[in-house]
């Protein structure tokens, strides 16, 4: 554990709390892509299967359980509790274009041909693109509630902080995970446009609006 990874994880936690807070206080999941949230459940469940057979640390265990539980809870909020506020007609990204290629990539690039290894790889690739339905929805509507942008910023900060974490681990442990690093760079890259608007508009007190 190093400071980059720790604050990355904290940022990830914060993003989830921000999202749940937004849904509860506005009593609405407007502006949130259900598809992206489903993909996160798939990411966490496939990656954290190792909860069943390996122990890393209490920190690791608690975080994994939290990420699985909170992502399922968000699906419940969107599909049951605040169902009328969820508008599938603007959540139109075709997730099969993400899941299919990620499955193929996982079969090619993995650390061993075991079901758990391929699923781990799959979860890494899928996480790197899971935000796309959400960003696509944002692009379509052209604007977002400020709290939704804070959610996305915290989520983007999480993976951004993992990059210095890997650089640190390379120098301190001589350790590189090419699958995680490649997917992580892609994932962070997807946030660059969003970050630009977030820093130049939202943090200056303006509404998040994309140019027409």
């Amino acid at each position: 554990m190093n400071i980059f990874r720790f604050f990355g994880d904290i940022s990830h936690l914060a993003s989830i709390f921000i999202l749940i807070h937004k849904i509860h206080t506005s009593r609405s999941c407007r502006g949130i892509s259900f598809k992206t949230q489903v993909l996160y459940v798939a990411v966490f469940v496939t990656r954290y299967l190792d909860l069943l057979y390996s122990w890393v640390s209490l920190y690791n265990f608690v975080m994994k359980v939290f990420f699985i539980a909170s992502s399922c809870y968000i699906l419940y909020l969107m599909k049951v509790r605040f169902r009328p506020t969820n508008d599938p007609s603007i959540d139109t990204f075709r997730v099969e274009y993400l899941v299919g290629p990620c499955a193929v990539l996982a079969l090619i690039f993995n650390y061993g041909y075991a079901v758990t290894e391929v699923l781990w790889s799959f979860s890494i690739f899928l996480e790197s693109v899971a935000i796309l339905p959400q960003l696509f929805m944002l692009q379509r509507t052209g604007e977002a509630e400020t709290i939704t942008t804070h959610y996305l910023a915290a989520l983007g900060a999480y993976r951004t902080l993992y990059i210095p974490n890997w650089i640190y681990r390379y120098f301190s442990e001589g350790y590189v995970d090419p699958i995680a690093v490649t997917a992580g760079l892609v994932q962070t890259g997807l946030y660059l446009d969003f970050f630009y608007v977030y820093f130049t508009k939202v943090l200056q007190g303006q509404k998040f609006e994309l140019p027409a």
Binding site: S54, V56, F67, Y111, Y162, Y175, V176, A180
Partner: peptide
């Protein structure tokens, strides 16, 4: 695994 994967990360 090869020991190279970052399974201890979240």
């Amino acid at each position: 695994g090869s020991g190279q994967s970052s399974k201890d990360e979240l």
